[in-house]
Design a protein around this nucleic acid. Sequence first.
DNA 1: ATAGGGTTAG
Length: 523
Amino acid sequence: ARSLFDQIPEPTAFCYNSLIRALATPSNPTTDAFLLYRRMLRAGSPSPNSFTVAFALKACAAVPALGKGRQLHSQAFRQGLEPSPYVQTGLLNLYARCEEVALARSVFDGMAEDKNLVAWSSMIGGYSRAGMVNEALDLFRDMQAAGVSPDEVTMVSVISACAKAGALDLGRWVHAFIDRKGIMVDLELSTALIDMYAKCGLIERARLVFDAMVERDTKAWSAMIVGLAMHGLAEDALGLFSRMLQLKIRPNNVTFIGVLSACAHNGLVDDGRRYWSTMQEMGIKASMENYGCMVDLLCRSGLLDEAYSFVTSMPILPNSVIWRNLLVASKSSNRTDIVGLASKKLFELEPQNPENYVLLSNLYALNSQWDRVRYMRKKMKDNNVTVVAGCSSIEINGYLHKFVVSDGSHPEIKEIRVVLREIADRVLRSGHKPWTAAVLHDVGEEEKEIALCEHSERLAIAYGLLKTKAPHVIRVVKNLRFCPDCHEVAKIISKSYGREIIVRDRVRFHRFIGGSCSCNDFW
DNA sequence: ATAGGGTTAG
């Protein structure tokens, strides 16, 4: 198409549009379409029309390229093309894909009263992608109130929002809604359902959805394998992977994230190494995440030296996640040499990322090295870095309650603090390290604050204790990695209150019953 | 003659 286009002496706007449209597919995430659009702005070329802008916006959304999209926005405005509903949905979708929720919303609100299904779906998708689950679900309700019926594309975003939030009750309700309304459960929606059930802890239901599928692509297999890996079901994950290979479905790097993390979570170092070579043999280019899995695999198995040399021999520059992983692991193995190297790299790589400061400061706090903790605090202040807290959430009665560190904004914070105090007492009585209970006990104000860092899940668990009774399972979702200290506290709470607690972090589930934990992480 | 929304990730 491109070469034919180049042969046309004076391409019309239609010629341009056709090529831009062909370039603006999700499978071709480049800005070629945008460059072609720019050519139209030069003298002697036909002027872009609303079709051109709509196609170019789609290309920008596929990349995604926010800056270029914004240029399109202002040019479209100048040329009076903005009122076109297709340009508007293009803009809305671009911002939604870039997680610029406020911008997307302003476009959405500026649209005509009778917004169509695509606009609603796009906006819901934006909220869902940004992790704003309550907003996504509220908009879903608004949409129905406005008399617009959702289709399977809308439902993918709604289900995906539930998956991100770990909102099991909502997810089940939405699935029932899909069945009730007779919405077609196609390949993508099935994949979203598998992901939702897996991330909400119902791996059996995920499997039922997977088994019921008539057609499964790489993403569907990957979602199932990643889900099994999250649940620590390495045997099932690896079994499914070999079935996938038998059926000649080509895995991608995401599939290998599942395979490698299954090995990592179950101490299968040799298998992990074998799958790593398999990946190379299949000609699949390892992504940063794949390298991360290998580092995690080696670290969890205590092979710190091998992990370190693996990191230093990577053909791409290791990112901060990899160094953080190494740092945490070498701290628990008391490898101060690697701790030093890794933290140096981290502060070089990301001097402005509060996570690094909090992480190191927490590691020091774990050993009650308060001087060092204070030093990290000072360094942070000197570098003008402000904490971005970890966030945890719990679903109660179909509403998602979110908590961040020292979060006093919850309407029931007084009652929650009473439960927290009680937890702190029980933790202390169990003989656990005092800093975990520093919330309320005899440490200075500063230490209190520090000790609470990254412990939003304690607020969420406390709220669960407050609002539910056994045998209701307390399910909490944490957006960061669950730390060793939190494991201990969760065990103590579970034993002392006789409650089942499940914490889902970025990569896996931790299930606590009667003071024991189902997962065998190295800590 | 050409239009817009979707899933998996250390």
